[in-house]
Design a protein around this nucleic acid. Structure first.
Lengths: 263, 263
DNA sequence: ACCTGAACACCGTTCAAGT
DNA sequence: ACCTGAACACCGTTCAAGT
């Protein structure tokens, strides 16, 4: 019954083949959303290809999706919405991307290159701090990227120089390759986590009639078990607002590098 | 026209009043999902209240929602699904919760108390590391909580002892109150970030025919600009799998405490 | 007070058919 | 090869009405 594999040629298309060869190469930096602002109904008919000119192509799809994301966030992005904006049926998109998830990942390509690289100090410790702060600052100005990034990691080739720099600094400071990769990840977690909760707080602040759980849930009866929390409750917003990403990342980096020296 | 506020009594219900007085108090620890496993069509009729006995009450709503979340994740939770499982119309739920977001927040109450508190060492540094590792380990076993937590912070009163402990250790180590709160947040970012990407990696591993962006996107031509990345590309999965949360959190905590000593 | 029924304005995706 | 039309199986939520 299940003897040898029959006809290994191409009888059963394994459904695995991705539709885009190399998305990052096919989708150059794009500066700051080139001309995606006009209503995309009729694309400029000046690109000459043989055969029937397809009404929509992957680049415009991704551009339109990216614009929706940065103007209205991930919640506003739907296949139907993109289809409407390019003047096509929802199902037309599925000829260019496998599904919504693939379209989302493609929107990340080029975002890192849309921002100029900063000058970096030479000292490894200061250098990796500068890179980490730059990562954070860039993403703070692109909230939609943070939302999309939770689906996966490292999809934009233009962002790899930052990873390279941080790992280079770690190695220069004496960490092992494994330690350097781990240190990079920890730094990334700090950056990413801060952005997620900063954005969550911003969203909550927009709907003020929502139940506030903390610190409103604390009563005087909690002072026994939670003395510091009750004491700090009144200042909590002020204290969290004073959070300094640069200072915290500096401390984290110092800890990671010192652990490498000892290990 | 817009003179003095008319009739400050209760003429216009300001739509702000939350429907649950104190969700955490109204919803005790609940151990490990008490008896939410039987089909919840007919609730046990042994609770005697006056007036028409409501067919559904908030507690069963939250229990059912929590079960769906931990069995199938946030994507599977919908108001309609919960309604069906309690044997009611979708709209019946809106008499007990304001919207889906409120229901999600309510599911968090009691989750921290469902896990026993660990023994903690006395030394502040070791103590806060133990708490952080406990946070991470607990949430690693409750992926749905991580997903819901991105909507906000600190909604489960039973989780506050961990924040209290970490802040207490920071203060005992000489940090200022502001420094202690900041240090807690940084530790939380590390814990949370690790969990998000661990889960994202697990999700991606489940659908293996998806495009892998990294490190597959790297070619030999990138060796100039990204020497470490190309060199480490082959070992990347192995290296990230070797990530040790406890070691990393230890280094982060050391860095944070030392920064406090100097500051 | 608590719940139902119908409706509105959406989703992602499959499938068969058109050119 | 590229796209359409209709359909499937869903969403969260509003509104008017029932008891």
């Amino acid at each position: 019954m299940e003897a040898e594999n029959p006809a290994p040629k191409a009888t059963k298309p394994t459904a695995a083949k991705p539709k885009t060869a190399n998305p990052t190469a096919a989708n150059p930096p794009a500066g700051n959303q080139p001309a995606a602002n006009q209503p995309a109904g009729n694309p400029p008919a000046e690109k000459k290809k043989r055969g029937r000119p397809s009404r929509i192509d992957l680049d415009t799809l991704v551009s339109v999706a990216r614009r929706i994301l940065q103007e209205e966030g991930v919640a506003a992005l739907s296949m139907r919405r993109v289809a409407k904006e390019v003047g096509a049926t929802p199902m037309a998109l599925y000829h260019h991307v496998r599904d919504k998830d693939e379209l989302l990942m493609l929107t990340l390509a080029g975002t890192a290159d849309s921002v100029p690289r900063p000058e970096l100090p030479d000292d490894p410790r200061d250098r990796m701090l500068a890179v980490a702060v730059h990562m954070h600052g860039t993403l703070a100005r692109m909230p939609w990227v943070v939302e999309v990034l939770s689906l996966g990691d490292l999809t934009d080739k233009g962002a790899l120089w930052m990873v390279e720099e941080i790992i280079d600094c770690c190695l220069a400071s004496g960490l092992t390759p494994a330690g350097a990769v781990a240190a990079y990840r920890t730094i990334w977690h700090c950056v990413y986590g801060e952005l997620v909760f900063r954005q969550a707080m911003a969203r909550r602040a927009e709907e003020p009639d929502r139940v506030r759980h903390f610190p409103d849930m604390l009563t005087d009866a909690d002072a026994d078990e939670l003395p510091h929390m009750t004491a700090l409750a009144g200042r909590w917003l002020e204290l969290t607002a004073a959070y300094d990403v640069s200072v915290q990342l500096g401390a984290v980096i110092d800890g990671l590098l010192r652990a490498g020296e000892r290990g």
